[in-house]
Design a protein around this nucleic acid. Sequence first.
DNA 1: ATCGTTTGCGCAAACGATTGCGGAAAATAC
DNA 2: GTATTTTCCGCAATCGTTTGCGCAAACGAT
Lengths: 333, 333
Amino acid sequence: MGRITIKDIAKLLEVNPSTVSRALKDHPDISVSMKEKIQQVAKDLGYQPNYQAIRFRQNKSGLIGLIIPEMGMFFFPAVVKAIEEIVKKNGYNLIILQSNDLLEKEKENALVCQNFGLDGLLVCLSKETMDVGHFTETIQRKMPIVFFDKVIQQKECSTVVINDELAAITAINHLARKGYKKISGIFGNQNLEITQSRKKGFLKALTKHRLLHYGEFCFHADTLEESKRKFAELLEQSVLPDAVFTMTDQTLAGVIQAIYEKGLSIPEELAVICISNGNLPYYLNPQITHIRHSGYAVGKTAVELLFDLMNDKVVVSNNQLELETFLVELDSC
Amino acid sequence: MGRITIKDIAKLLEVNPSTVSRALKDHPDISVSMKEKIQQVAKDLGYQPNYQAIRFRQNKSGLIGLIIPEMGMFFFPAVVKAIEEIVKKNGYNLIILQSNDLLEKEKENALVCQNFGLDGLLVCLSKETMDVGHFTETIQRKMPIVFFDKVIQQKECSTVVINDELAAITAINHLARKGYKKISGIFGNQNLEITQSRKKGFLKALTKHRLLHYGEFCFHADTLEESKRKFAELLEQSVLPDAVFTMTDQTLAGVIQAIYEKGLSIPEELAVICISNGNLPYYLNPQITHIRHSGYAVGKTAVELLFDLMNDKVVVSNNQLELETFLVELDSC
DNA sequence: ATCGTTTGCGCAAACGATTGCGGAAAATAC
DNA sequence: GTATTTTCCGCAATCGTTTGCGCAAACGAT
């Protein structure tokens, strides 16, 4: 015999399946003696409810979806770790979908989510995404969504982000306080709001400290390799920066490789600061001063907000959370 | 009106739902004219099949499960990336479960997989796991399983691993060839087969090169912090190693921190080699010579084997694959 | 014209669990 | 002793889709 079903138990005890169903969930309509009998048999036979059937009937999937651009080595592992833990704690499970930073794949993923009847969705947008219509139009009526990290701010959307502008300002303030003047800024993809905000903060802080004339030390890089290559080129010029700010771990990794290859000493010849999840900076020599942007905290906050939405616990309509960041001062500046 | 179902289309066209179902999947029993009519209406109404219902009826979940100890920063992100890509390419989706290296949670996860009716399962065992009964007894009759990386070799199990012993031997041979003699070995959790195999290879190679009398430079460490602390202690002793081998990125990260803090120069005062996924070694200064153990390749191979099992494509009963590793010589030795 | 085959579609059961309703038996009330 | 309530369980429909079977009508062959 294959899997034990409610029908099997019912047949064995010569009762109706509905009685078994109610007995197993302690329904008051069933007598104590009958409950005990049924629960005993269920236990003996090793009955396991068919959740597939339950979810089908209740039109619940028991699943939370997570769409991310790509599982890299820095930020998203921490996000995923947090989300998986909390999703499981709430009795759900986690489905992961990668968009590979392609709008097309993101749309496909949105469809998959819809067809799976996911109970909730967490999204970090691809760099190609310019609006979130493919999520809101079709899905959001019944499926709560929380956007995090790479988001597009709209008033109907729940989001979890950090104050990107402030994070960059904090970094530059630190450099300025330490006396660095020729500050280079390395940024990610231009389309992203986080890039724009961090760059805005960067420029704002430079302006405040009257250092803006060194703005030519800035560039954008989508990949680690591009970051490395461009920074290596920058280091070949006649006028060199005395400090560099990178807006992510990924750009940091590229910049660091270029610095090592050039043989510059940190911080004597070049100071370094970045916004980071908080792992890589500790592995490097010297350790890198950074603004802590914890993927774990972002993931945790996003998924907790999602469950609040799912349980209608959120009174406020404007669910746009902003996490705190803080400076971790190490040896690189 | 909510979601469009087959019944809705049937009612609209005054035909039977079964006709609609067959027409939509191009069944030969349905006339061409009827097919066209039905498919047109389905399109107009924006019909989306309820996969939940389909999977329920067919007793298929469309899901592949992945159980890992913990999403760290080094190996598993690459594994997950590969698996997600291939799973999706085959029309499935991926559920991720973390065991946190706890046998209890691993058992819970196995139950979840069962109840979800997953179509296939990929497992990297926790360090507490001593046998795989909680998988094989209950699940494997209907759900193919592939164990990878941290496995327990049994003849009924499909596994994907590397030749751990050979990887360690390759590393030590390289050190010996370069003239290093006092070789320290840093290993992960003792229970794991990968640890035992790598240590075995380490000792075997040391023996071959008549360097075994330096065996006191070895220890085990479960975490990055433990690795750092113990190696820092080791560096306080009177006799120091001239080279260190770490069996993972995680132990490498700890060892590197201890080396940096002590201010030793690599490779002049201390050579370094490791088995690595191939990211971290490039971020360090100098870059670390390593035996490449690609998480992406492991994940890809494991999930491809899984699909072969699911499609009964595997003729051989003994599905124990061993991936190639190779030496990447950089600056640390 | 008769018989056999193909074509095209409907009927109804099934997957496993849930739930509103109804009703017989038991318990309580008067 | 009758009326009313409570207790306890069964009946049957339901979720959306699939599928074996049956059966008319149309077609083809002789």
